[in-house]
Computed example of a mutant assay.
Amino acid sequence: MTTVRQFQVTFDCAEPERVARFWCEVLGYVPPQPPDGFASWDEYNQTLPEDERDSWFACTDPNGVGPRLFFQRVPEGKVVKNRVHLDVRVGTGLVGAERLAALTAERDRLIPLGAVEVLLQEADEVNESCIWMNDVEGNDFCLD
Rank of each mutant, 00 (worst) to 15 (best):
V136K: 02
Q6K: 08
T2R: 14
P49S: 11
N45M: 08
P67M: 10
Y29M: 00
E106W: 00
V118K: 10
Q8G: 13
D135F: 03
K81L: 09
A20T: 06
E125T: 11
N82E: 15
R21Q: 11
R109P: 00
T3A: 11
L110H: 04
G96C: 04
D36P: 13
Q33Y: 05
Y29D: 03
N63D: 15
R109G: 02
P16Y: 06
L110I: 00
E117S: 05
R68W: 08
M133K: 04
F11G: 00
L110M: 04
L103Y: 13
G64S: 14
D108T: 06
M133Y: 04
C24T: 11
R18H: 07
A101F: 08
W56T: 06
P32L: 12
G64R: 07
N82M: 04
P34N: 08
Q72L: 11
P16G: 06
Y29P: 02
D36H: 07
V88H: 09
E98L: 01
G91E: 07
R68N: 10
D51N: 14
T10Y: 01
P31W: 00
A123P: 06
F7P: 06
V79P: 01
R53L: 03
A105N: 13
Q72T: 11
N139V: 00
D108R: 05
D51P: 06
C13T: 06
V90E: 14
D87P: 06
V84K: 02
R53P: 05
V116N: 01
E106H: 01
L94E: 14
A101M: 05
W41C: 05
P34S: 05
